[in-house]
């Protein structure tokens, strides 16, 4: 028996408090050390020695102007790309998953493989494959940064798929959609009034993960010569590594907030029961208490 894990007659139980803390501490350390090192780096006072918030204050006091102005443009690009990617996920992935779930359940496995596949393809390989597609695309719609959203739509597919699928597995969407249709709802009403509200958690989680992935993406943008937040930070870091690290920390913080929001969604409680909006009336039938 593993130390700290209590078991009775071979049945494993939850690890003890000490084991949990140990695991949490070790994993936390792996994540915390680089972040703390980044923070420590931004607080250094250079050759003078010691620590202060001077670099943070200077960055925000002066505003992101001059050499930092491209960062704002890049941030706007990344936010636009995040929105575009989320739209692609919502408009293409959600209806496709619902359609497969309700009408073509035999295709579920195929769809799952297709959606999970991008996670096993390195970004560099993806770019090699996408480069000719993008050069072709540029002839029709130009080579604006926004076109990266198509590539990001592919990279976030595994994460968005998993988030939505886990919600989908917990909801009997087929019966709900049939019930709604039997009550006179068309497919659009079924989608918007019944399915989407019940898949809200999965869809929001998928969207937030998509935003987090897009804000942190560097390889594809760099290799396809597009400017986003991460490529701009690399440029800034060549002149002012301190500011680049500060901005990276802020990007991490935003991603952390998004993930926190996902966690909150998972534990969100339902609305409390509301009072009867009508005047209570005496039951006309013998109620069956069950």
């Amino acid at each position: 028996m593993t130390a700290g894990i209590r078991s009775v007659r071979g049945v494993a139980h939850a690890p003890g408090r000490a084991t949990r803390l140990l695991i949490l501490g070790a994993v936390g350390l792996v994540f915390a050390v680089p972040i703390l090192a980044m923070i420590e780096f931004t607080l250094r006072r250079g050759l003078v020695g010691g620590y202060d918030f001077q670099r943070w204050i200077e960055l925000f006091q002066n505003g992101l102007t001059g050499e930092y102005a491209p960062v704002l443009v890049a941030l706007a690009n990344s936010v636009g790309l995040a929105v575009g990617t989320v739209v692609i996920v919502l408009v293409l992935l959600v209806p496709t998953m619902l359609l497969v779930h309700i009408r073509f359940p035999r295709l579920r496995r195929t769809l799952e493989i297709l959606c999970i596949l991008p996670i096993s393809i390195p970004a560099i390989v993806l770019v090699v494959g996408l480069a000719p597609v993008f050069s072709g695309l540029a002839r029709f719609v130009g080579s604006g940064v926004w076109t990266l959203a198509f590539a990001y739509g592919i990279t976030v597919l595994p994460f968005a798929y998993r988030a939505i699928q886990s919600n989908l597995d917990g909801v009997d969407v087929r019966t709900l959609s049939e019930a709604a249709r039997s009550l006179g709802a068309g497919w659009l009403s079924v989608l918007l009034r019944v399915l989407v509200p019940n898949l809200r958690r999965g869809i929001l989680a998928g969207a937030f993960i998509a935003v987090a992935v897009v804000l942190g993406e560097f390889t594809i943008a760099s290799l396809l010569s597009r400017v986003n937040l991460q490529t701009a930070l690399v440029v800034v870091s060549k002149n002012d590594p301190y500011s680049a690290v500060i901005l990276s920390l802020l990007a991490l913080f935003v991603a952390f907030l998004l993930l926190l929001a996902i966690g909150r969604l998972g534990t969100e409680r339902r609305r409390p029961a509301r009072a009867d909006p009508t005047t209570p009336t005496t039951p006309t039938s013998g109620g069956v208490q069950s």
Partner: peptide, 12 residues
């Protein structure tokens, strides 16, 4: 009310 649940209007 017909099914004896008029007091449960706001319940989920």
């Amino acid at each position: 009310a017909l099914v004896g649940l008029d007091a449960h209007y706001g319940r989920f």
